[in-house]
Design a protein around this nucleic acid. Structure first.
Length: 183
DNA sequence: AATGACAGCCGCT
DNA sequence: AGCGGCTGTCATT
């Protein structure tokens, strides 16, 4: 099945994002043109006007604060096994405006042996899975935080800043002085 | 209360 | 086969 790319402008500190779309839906999302899941961002551009328009419109509404759930079709091809299970758990259990810790998500996913989980091993594994998440934004990995703070974020040098921006948009964090999003 | 060591693994190169 | 990376707990001070 072929993959094509759509570029969408955003108010994020990291700038525009690129989305990989297939006939099944969105397969990957990349901040600032980094490769995802071993697939290079770039050509070919998406020529399906309807699909590209839908993606652009939904994201635009989300960033403007007019849409809480993206509700875009997802192609899970780049998330397999436990990785996919954790991502789907996150998508199903953590709604807009809520957060969950790495450890708690690990427990709820049920893919780790909790009795043998001494020292937060499962939590680290979840963190690694979030870092390798091919579906940024669609699967709300920015709502996963550390037990004692914000936690980390990939997506380039502006990663953490981007995570804060998204949490501010969703009302989890108070706006900063340089907030450029919707009220 | 603050700091630091350490344990352990998925996926890319 | 190696390595880097979005954490949490415990033992110190």
């Amino acid at each position: 099945m072929s993959i094509s790319w759509v570029t969408v402008g955003t108010p994020l500190p990291s700038g525009p994002i690129c989305l990989a779309v297939t006939a099944l839906g969105v397969a990957a999302v990349s901040y600032s043109g980094e490769s995802v899941g071993g697939v290079r961002v770039g050509t070919p551009q998406c020529t399906d006007e309807e699909k590209a328009g839908l993606v652009t419109a939904r994201l635009g509404e989300y960033f403007a604060g007019r849409r809480r759930e993206l509700e875009l079709p997802i192609d899970w091809r780049f998330a397999t096994g436990p990785h996919r299970t954790v991502l789907q758990t996150l998508l199903a259990r953590v709604p807009y405006g809520a957060t969950i810790t790495y450890g708690e998500l690990a427990a709820r996913s049920g893919v780790f042996d909790e009795l043998q989980d001494a020292g937060g091993v499962a939590a680290r594994t979840v963190g690694q899975m979030m870092g390798a998440n091919p579906l940024a934004l669609l699967v709300p990995c920015h709502r996963v935080v550390a037990s004692d703070g914000l936690g980390g974020f990939g997506g380039g040098p502006r990663g953490l800043e981007t995570k804060r921006w998204l949490l501010t948009l969703e009302g989890v964090l108070p706006p900063t002085l340089d907030w450029n999003g919707p009220a």
